[in-house]
Design a protein around this nucleic acid. Structure first.
Lengths: 282, 282
DNA sequence: GTAAGTTACGAGCGACGTAAAAATG
DNA sequence: CATTTTTACGTCGCTCGTAACTTAC
């Protein structure tokens, strides 16, 4: 049987024009390449090269063979890529979430339950989640509304309550019963950039408040510790930080607006039903 | 590099369901097949089979790989077919003619001039000749009219004069100066089936004459020798038969109608200019 | 003289087959 | 107990590289 090796050699000869140069590229000696090509010709019982004493040139049949060989090598290449990335995708759970908070809950659970799998998560615009699930870009999505779609299972997952964190010396520090968003008018706040739906639910309703954006996770934490500015947090982030042993002297004041409380839903295709997490207390 | 051999083995395993059966088909021992597949998996760094202790089953990645492998093996197959038949076509001159006579002139010349090439000739409907030349079905065509087409060279080749042959005892035997077609009304004649344009030029103008058709070359010759019926011949066929040493006691009477004389033209693509024959006396 | 291609020859490595082991039904 | 797969091991054969030869520029 002709082999891909020989196709590669043939194409390389076509590219370089001589056996010697091709032999270097394919990492065999030039006589070995001669033999390999001769064997291919014998196998097919055709002549691929015009042979002069110290020169070979592709003949018409050879040119045709090179054309085909190129295409097949290309196909084999895309084949291996497809197979390898498919295998990788089988070992990866891709999660799309409309907010970062629920991921703090979800990822540890999945890490534990699916040991060995790779978890890939991102916070994206909520409109992209269901289409992404259908296309297989995500195997699991977190939304702030219930999802109804064919072959998709949806269940409530957890809720998130927004808080304001301020240093003890801050003027608002005495409002431990909670405050309203509109009271933050005129303030300057620290804000994490990738907050998903919170942007529309909360931030867009605070035109009078100035925000300093930070898009790096760790930098944001450091910034909060070092700064006297108020910032948002949530029960989920606070729990997560506490769990990580992170110390803070900041005070946490619940946000009293109804928008500050969200229930999240987790959805997966029926084929990936197993990925759905257990429900947290809402 | 993965090799076609392994693709074949993979597909065969998919087809048979077990390594043992597949090993028989691909003519290696079963352990060798195990190793070969393991090597493929290592090469790609993927798992293609679910392995139980004495059973292997294609997993999803494996199914995908088999799909691709099938397609690539198919492609390689069509590739080798294409290459081999292209090579064959390079060694073959395919000739289409509108009448059998000129081939008697042409083939010997080409045989001599292109020793080693295979000649393939057929008598076909004149309308198919130029399209056939364009499509590469023919490298040389013989027509009864001059051909003008881009990238096609055309030259007059030879002429053919129709004769009537009759046994000496036939009533028409004394008409050695020639006769007209219409005088054959009411006769029964022997006729070779594959006569190309002669059918339209001559036969269709003889509604009163009855023809006994014969489509095998040798049988037709024998039939003529053994029969008392008149038949058509031409200067070309007569010369050919004489050249072959064929003896006949038949008399030959020229047909006097203008349709009984034809000039033939030979045409070839410019790329196959060398195939054009020298001109015969017209 | 240099560079290229084919042929000859000997060696090493890789793939093969046999044999053995383990597991399943 | 038959069937299937995997592992172990020794051997054979294939392909490789070196060397020598020929030819061309």
């Amino acid at each position: 049987m002709a082999e891909l090796n020989q196709f590669y050699q043939l194409v390389t000869i076509a590219d370089t024009g001589t056996l010697s140069k091709a032999a270097e590229i394919v990492h065999i000696s030039q006589p070995a390449l001669t033999r390999s090509i001769q064997k291919l010709e014998a196998e097919w019982n055709v002549t691929l090269f015009d042979r002069q004493k110290n020169k070979i040139t592709l003949n018409q049949t050879g040119e045709l063979a090179v054309q085909y060989a190129r295409r097949i090598l290309d196909d084999v290449n895309t084949m291996t890529n497809a197979i390898q990335s498919y295998e990788r995708s089988l070992r990866t759970i891709s999660i799309g979430s409309c907010a970062p908070g629920p991921l703090l809950e979800l990822l540890p659970e999945l890490t534990e339950r699916f040991y060995g799998m790779t978890l890939a998560s991102e916070t994206v615009c909520v409109e992209n989640l269901l289409p992404g699930l259908s296309k297989g870009i995500y195997q699991l999505i977190i939304t702030d509304t219930e999802v109804t779609a064919p072959d998709v299972l949806c269940c409530p997952f957890c809720s998130e309550q927004l808080y304001l964190t301020v240093p003890p010396a801050h003027p608002l520090a005495n409002r431990k019963d909670g405050i309203y968003l509109e009271e933050l008018a005129g303030e300057t706040m620290l804000l994490f950039k990738e907050i998903g739906i919170w942007k529309n639910r909360v931030i867009s309703k605070m035109p009078q408040t100035k925000f300093i954006l930070q898009d790096q996770d760790e930098a944001f934490s450091a910034l909060i510790q070092a700064s006297a500015l108020p910032a948002f947090a949530s029960d989920l982030t606070l729990k997560h930080n506490h769990h990580r042993g992170e110390q803070t002297h900041r005070l946490t004041l619940p946000i009293l607006d109804p928008e500050a409380h969200v229930t999240f839903y987790c959805s997966a295709p029926k084929s990936h039903k197993a990925y759905l997490p257990g429900q947290r207390s809402l």
